[in-house]
Design a protein around this nucleic acid. Structure first.
Length: 561
RNA sequence: UGGCCCAUGGUGUAAUUGGCAACACAGCUGGUUUUGGUCCAGUCGUUCUAGGUUCGAGUCCUAGUGGGCCAACCA
């Protein structure tokens, strides 16, 4: 890639400085450290692109490390989903690691700390400990167990490990500084008792290390050079460094933590906890519901990994609060899908057109090009006949000159077909139009080369032949939240902004070439948008998702009146 | 009311580290087009405030303002 010319983000500046300062390029190593307690979302995609992107840029390995220190929330199923998502994004990790692989080392280091008088077993309730901890403006005070003897601490900690105590009875705490302005340094908890089976270590352990006692050490054991995390971990850095101070040896690389701002996307939430709420509340069908900003949701929706990676690259990385507009994401899917999808015709909201001068029973199979962007995609045949469907929105009895579509007495080109003229229409008792009767110009067939075929008419419509049309279920999605920043309101819960109309299911009529469309296949339904075949598709039920609409200039013109 | 972080067009990021503020998206105008798509051309608009250092400040210093984070046996 010609990546080298691009401006560097602040993380890359840090790495460049380190390189200039004597780091060998071969020492560079990164990691992506998800907790397997939920599915990956667009925020993680940014982090994935950052870490793996750095790996690609510097030719450095990147580990996939599961931060699995809390068996109460974590599951193997999430591990599998995360691996699938990272692979789908097109990245390759060097080692597949688990924090749980380091439980023994972590335990040994904790024992070492106790022996040095730097950690102690506290046996109070969490409420009491919280009280003694003070507040950001007042220092904490020592609890009654802070000065237990090394022997007693060692004994208690061993018995915690052996499962002799119930949850909540004892914790192991580091003895650091109760007066620190950084709350995290006020004797942070290192271990808690948890009688839960772990997805990898099963019931081997009755005590589990906390994040702060795990992350830096994991980085150190894996010799990660730059440990990148989001800004809310900035206050943890002091503790991260304290932990490393206790055990780093001078001849090994010492990892450094640096922090960047998480990405926020407009009209959605990027928080596993909140996404879980949507899943559990039944507002969506699951983590991979196409409306979800999860990687699996976007995949099912028809997004491509390339479009997500380009999005992440364009958005970049920095340290300030942000709210990225979804339109940027949509721009990137359209940009990619425009290049790779074949064009087809489908009618979502049918209105019957009868071509009165077209022979009854006749069917012509017309040539249609699969992509105006890419001739190598070839052509296909589409059937033309006396009875067709067009979109209801494409016909009006009367309209002004700005309406480039079909109106009574007006002409329009049927894409890949003939020029037709609307002669009359019939209505039902409510007055809504149910059929348009047209005539066609037999010499105007697209591609026939005749003078008539070359005639310019202002509008071109997509259509399908009624007799050969394939019915399909089409799912039209709208934003999941009506508010631009649903979790940005202090007094209102984000759930208040859930859009009740985020899904519209319709029956559409497709050209017959789509009959055998495979799950996952992506198309452009001409003039409508990009669609893909959903995983719910079965032998007798074709299901399409609308990935994104085409840019719609006409909608804007109409809005202006 | 303590500590830490942040502040550049509507949005997101750049600025050769103190030297003409730029790129993308969005918006707007026009052109091409058998998709009101794509493509092409053009256009709008930016350094939070006040001081200071300097020949020169988006960048450095001070103060202010605004926003965020920090008192889980979560990560």
């Amino acid at each position: 890639m010609e990546e080298s010319k691009k401006a560097l983000n602040f993380i890359e500046h840090i790495i460049e400085e380190d390189l200039a300062d004597g780091y060998a390029k071969s020492q560079l190593r990164f990691r992506f450290p998800p907790e397997p307690n939920g599915y990956l979302h667009l925020g993680h995609a940014s982090s994935i692109c950052l870490n793996f992107g750095l790996g690609e840029k510097y030719g450095a390995p990147v580990n996939l490390r599961f931060d699995d220190t809390n068996p109460a929330k974590e599951e193997k199923a999430y591990v599998d989903a995360i691996k699938r998502d990272v692979e789908w994004m097109g990245f390759h990790w060097d080692k597949e690691c688990y924090a749980s692989d380091y439980f023994q080392e972590l335990y040994d280091w904790a024992v070492m700390l106790i022996k040095q008088g730097k950690a102690y077993v506290d046996s109070q309730s969490s409420e009491d400990m919280a009280k003694q901890k003070g507040t950001p403006t007042e220092p904490g005070v020592p609890g009654p167990y802070r000065d237990r003897s090394v022997e007693e601490n060692l004994d208690l900690f061993l018995r915690m490990k052996n499962g002799e105590f119930e949850e909540g009875k004892h914790v192991l705490r580091a003895k650091i500084d109760l007066a620190s302005p950084n709350m995290l340094m006020r004797d942070p908890i290192l271990y808690r008792v948890l009688h839960k089976a772990h997805h990898r270590t099963n019931t081997d352990w009755c005590i589990y290390p906390m994040y702060d006692w795990t992350h830096g050490q994991s980085d150190y054991l894996e010799q990660v050079s730059h440990s990148l995390c989001t800004l809310e971990f900035l206050p943890h850095r002091e503790l991260y460094d304290w932990c490393l101070d206790q055990l780093v040896s001078k001849d090994r690389l010492r990892p450094k933590q640096r922090e960047f701002a998480r990405r926020n996307l407009s009209h959605t939430v990027v928080s596993k906890r909140k996404l879980l709420q949507l899943v559990e509340g039944g507002h969506v069908t699951g983590w991979d519901d196409p409306r979800m900003p999860t990687i699996s949701g976007l995949r099912r929706r028809g997004y491509t990994p390339e479009s997500i990676r380009n999005f992440a690259d364009t958005v970049g990385i920095a340290k300030r609060e942000n709210l990225v507009d979804v339109s940027l994401l949509e721009f990137h899917v359209r940009e990619h899908l425009n290049k790779i999808t074949p064009r087809v015709m489908a009618v979502l909201n049918p209105l019957k057109v009868v071509i009165t001068n077209y022979p009854e029973g006749q069917v012509e199979w017309l040539d249609a090009e699969n992509s105006p962007e890419d001739e190598s995609m070839g052509t296909r045949k589409v059937p033309f006949s006396r009875e067709l469907y067009i979109e209801k929105e494409d016909f009006r009895e009367e309209a002004n000159r700005k309406f480039f579509r079909l109106k009574l007495g007006g002409e329009v080109r049927l894409k890949n077909g003939y020029i037709i003229k609307a002669e009359s229409c019939t209505k039902d008792t409510d007055g809504s139009i149910i059929e348009v009767r047209c005539t066609y110009d037999p010499k105007s067939r697209s591609g026939s080369g005749t003078e008539e075929s070359l005639r310019k008419v202002k509008g071109t419509l997509h259509w399908v032949s009624v007799a050969q049309a394939v019915e399909a279920e089409v799912r039209l999605y709208d934003r999941l939240f009506s508010d631009e920043n649903p979790d940005g309101h202090k007094e209102r819960d984000f759930m208040e902004f859930v859009n009740p109309n985020s899904l519209l299911v319709i029956t559409a009529y497709l050209e017959p070439s789509l009959k055998e469309a495979k799950v996952g296949a992506r198309y452009q339904f001409q003039r409508l948008g990009y669609f893909n075949v959903d995983t719910d598709t079965t032998g007798d039920n074709l299901v399409f998702n609308r990935t994104v609409t085409l840019r719609d200039t006409w909608a804007k013109i109409q809005q202006k009146g």
